[in-house]
């Protein structure tokens, strides 16, 4: 599978591991509850660790762990639910997270310009065919009126 990261289409080298499944080798991403439960095991794991947040998860609750995490996935179930824009802003701005922030799932290709502005730097749309289109939408606007992350 491929994703967009830092305005390039690249191969995805992360695996999401479901809550009940065994960890796999390499870079793994887990749900927020699993992270809370298995933090020690995950940190001992050979590979990088990512955490997947849903719209209801509070970014503040993971703030203290951010230095040990390399990827935050923001899972979009409903593109009209704008909470992830503030979650990304918090991660980058308030908590100075330097790792990858990836939007996954049902966001609209038309939202990626905004997502980039609030600090999201990677995109994994549902449908891989959209990648070139998502990439081109990153440049929808060359001007902006207000401060944000970017």
């Amino acid at each position: 599978m491929q994703i967009i990261k830092d305005k390039q289409i690249i191969d995805d080298n992360w695996n999401y591991v479901a809550d009940e499944a065994e960890l796999v080798a390499g870079n793994v991403s887990v749900s927020f509850p699993r992270w809370q439960k298995d933090k020690a095991d995950l940190l001992a794991h050979n590979g990088k660790v990512g955490v997947r947040l849903g719209a209801v998860d509070c970014v503040e609750d993971i703030a203290a762990d951010l230095s040990t995490i390399d990827l935050i996935e923001l899972a979009v179930v409903d593109f009209a639910d704008g909470r992830l824009f503030s979650q990304a802003w918090y991660l980058r701005n308030r908590f100075a997270f330097l790792g990858e922030i990836r939007a996954i799932g049902h966001f609209m290709p038309d939202q990626v310009f905004y997502l980039t502005r609030v600090g999201v730097n990677a995109f994994a749309p549902e449908n891989n065919d959209y990648l070139p289109f998502v990439l081109s939408n990153l440049n929808d606007f060359s001007v902006k009126y207000q401060k944000s992350v970017n």
């Binding site: 704008g82 905004y114 502005r117 609030v118 902006k144 207000q146």
Partner: peptide
């Protein structure tokens, strides 16, 4: 007006 226009964080409010 300028601050609200295309505000990246607040375009998908409740």
């Amino acid at each position: 007006r300028q601050w609200t226009t295309l505000h990246p964080e607040f375009d998908y409010l409740p």
